[in-house]
Design a protein around this nucleic acid. Structure first.
Lengths: 166, 166
DNA sequence: TTGTGTGCAAAAGCTTTGCATGTTG
DNA sequence: CAACATGCAAAGCTTTTGCACACAA
């Protein structure tokens, strides 16, 4: 279920993850003859210090607030690069607004969205994999990824928390 | 799998469906004190004469081409009404563009989207229902609907058909 | 007749693009 | 130093909104 309950080791674990993804990104950029700019690494690091889901504008604003000079264009550009090398996942939770989340080191999962308060929960179910395999074979598709969102109301506790797990 | 292979009886079956949905919509409008305008019924009928998936603009253009005078605003307004009374389903297939399809008289299904050519196939799998039930209970959510999209490449036949039928 | 619905165009919101400048390799 | 990336602002696209007019009840 993807909770890393915050323990004493969390800090260093987060730092370890960050070092790893920076390396992975660096290698990816090299292999594709793309340039290693400070903006690209700063955005990646920022994403991995955040938790859960965010949109491009929120990421942009958050970097601005930290006095990091970056442009929207670069944020969008870098997000696309990161999605391409599987360090970030892109979602749409029923609105015309792309939501992103870090993906390296986290278990594959799907989402449950409260249509009233926007809260996003995560869950894993192995049956999805079976469905992907079966349908790919049946319909002669090479299934590469999927998106499963369940929508509904969170019973009772609609205003108590936002979509963060942290 | 939602194919109504076109047979001699298809015409009258389609007409029957159309009469039914017009009645359902009419009742829905009455019950909610909404007005029965010719535009609303024309849009519903147009949708049920189309096949597969379309976006708001395509629907608007198609009605214009038939010399039916309607505005984009009314198309959007009516689509929302129809989604609310479950006569039309709204989807997002990975792009910032809402796609719609008629839903009355068709089995609940999910989608398989070719990321190369945009083709959309449909499939049914009862395991989804189980997942919805289980996760709703587990996470204390009242799950009302869901969206499952599988993405991949359709093997071989990518350019042969477009995603439109109309 | 009253007020909801429509059409039109303008505005809004997210994302992409063009161009001059800056920086990586 | 050459090509690519960035920043900024403008443009693009889908969707929403405001307002005057039309028409359903």
């Amino acid at each position: 279920m993807n909770q890393m309950t915050t323990t004493m080791s969390t800090q260093s674990h987060e730092e370890k993850i960050i070092r790893e993804v920076l390396n992975i990104f660096s290698t990816h950029l090299e292999q594709n003859n793309l340039r290693k700019t400070p903006e690209r690494f700063a955005i990646l690091e920022e994403i991995y210090r955040r938790d859960d889901h965010f949109d491009a504008e929120a990421l942009y604003i958050h970097m601005k607030n930290q006095n990091y000079r970056v442009s929207r264009a670069t944020v969008y550009n870098t997000l696309e690069l990161l999605v391409n090398c599987d360090l970030v996942k892109k979602h749409q939770f029923g609105k015309n607004l792309a939501q992103y989340e870090k993906s390296y080191g986290f278990k594959q999962h799907d989402h449950l969205i409260c249509v009233d308060c926007g809260k996003v929960l995560e869950f894993c179910d192995p049956r999805i994999q079976n469905i992907k395999n079966m349908m790919g074979e049946l319909l002669k598709f090479n299934v590469t990824h999927h998106s499963l969102n369940l929508y509904g109301q969170c019973q009772g506790a609609c205003e108590k928390t936002q979509s963060k797990v942290s």
